[in-house]
Design a protein around this nucleic acid. Sequence first.
RNA 1: CGGGGCGUAGCUCAGCCUGGUAGAGCGCCAGCUUUGGGAGCUGGAUGCCGGAGGUUCGAAUCCUCUCGCCCCGACCA
Length: 438
Amino acid sequence: MRLSAYFLPLLRENPSEAQIVSHRLMLRAGMIRQSSAGIYSWLPLGLRVLKKVEQIVREEQDASGALEVLMPTIQPAELWQESGRYDDYGKEMLRITDRHERAMLYGPTNEEQITDIFRQSVKSYRDLPRNLYHIQWKFRDEVRPRFGVMRGREFLMKDAYSFDLDAAGAKRSYNRMFVAYLRTFARMGLKAIPMRADTGPIGGDLSHEFIILAETGESQVFCDKAWLDADILASEIDYAGDLEPFVERWTRLYAATDEKHDAKACPVAEDRLVTARGIEVGHIFYFGTKYSKPMGAVVAGPKGEPIAVEMGSYGIGVSRLVGAVIEASHDDAGIIWPESVAPFTLGLVNLRAADARCVAAADALYARLGAAGIETLYDDRDESPGAKFAAMDLIGLPYQLVIGPRGLDKGLVELKERKTGRKEELSPEAALNRLGGK
RNA sequence: CGGGGCGUAGCUCAGCCUGGUAGAGCGCCAGCUUUGGGAGCUGGAUGCCGGAGGUUCGAAUCCUCUCGCCCCGACCA
């Protein structure tokens, strides 16, 4: 993509309404614009990141055996009256009336909807287990939306729902999601730590919050030092096999939010205890028959007996993750994207848009990068070098390839790694080879 | 929902106390000169001063109401 033809409205100064770093950087880097409190538009650069995050979530859900569906944002009130949550949910739920005066609502979550779909079609234990998920916009009319995309009222969420015949099966489903979650966050370069959690209004009795460590996180967390070296992706996962040992391994390591942490009772020695800030990016629940019973999600068992299915639900804040990644990875100059979610892999910078020789060299490289399948944002604008460097650092692409007259005299270009700031002069050939390996 | 703050140019903000008809820096447009870490000069455009009502000869400024946004707290993917 040529920057001269892109829509990337950068801000040089910090908008006054943005207090936390991810919000500031997302606005400054032209990723989002606010529409009203807690509601945002996603601009091209931000949308690319959102899509990448979404895709990683999708791939790991699919790998775990979950099946993607897409449920509507607007739901009928009757479903929620059936489960008993229509009155319980309170003002967080945006209630709408259609032209026929029918009570509708903008879904804050989809347990009722999915249970309805399930009960209409699944009648036999032989069709279990199943896990259905979708990635859809939610609306929760938060009293106090804040922190940009991290606590919006409208947000993109992946929510999965598992259906099993019995508690043991439900625990296996829970384990699959537990593993998929650890892998999902690890792939985004995040250290996500599962912590025992209260179940809140969703209900149930087995639940973990996944909290990533970030200096700017909202909550105080405590964990065993071993978490810092945890390499989730090193383990081979067989979703068809027994995941309990893996889950056991990662739930045994101490981790607690400040609400649950008791310094006196803490089993971790002081020198092994890490105190850090955290952001919740996922939450999984096992809640048994809380919805299946009142809503009649019942299947015939092996002997023909009616069995209310055991359910769990599993959420990931997809849009929140975009902010969370920034909270976890930035410096004074701007964002530092992990490659897996970066909007582009490479920023190609032509320092002299007025110099025919530089333009020719940059154009040629741009064509070859495209042919090599490397996602490149090509800064072909006629701007001063300083402005270009600052813009590239701000938007945080993992690599920058700089072409200028000084280097070209020697037949060299400069490759800079955003994360480390390390720069290296090398031939265009060598640069292509280096990037091709990415 | 309780407490606090702020709405003036695209962004950051001054002006408000003490009323006299709107400013700066950056950005934007044009031209020239520049060019390896947010360049310089010259010229130019941009505002229902959040909205409504009131006081006044006169309101960005004073008063009343209202809307919006932000922060702290209680709650949340």
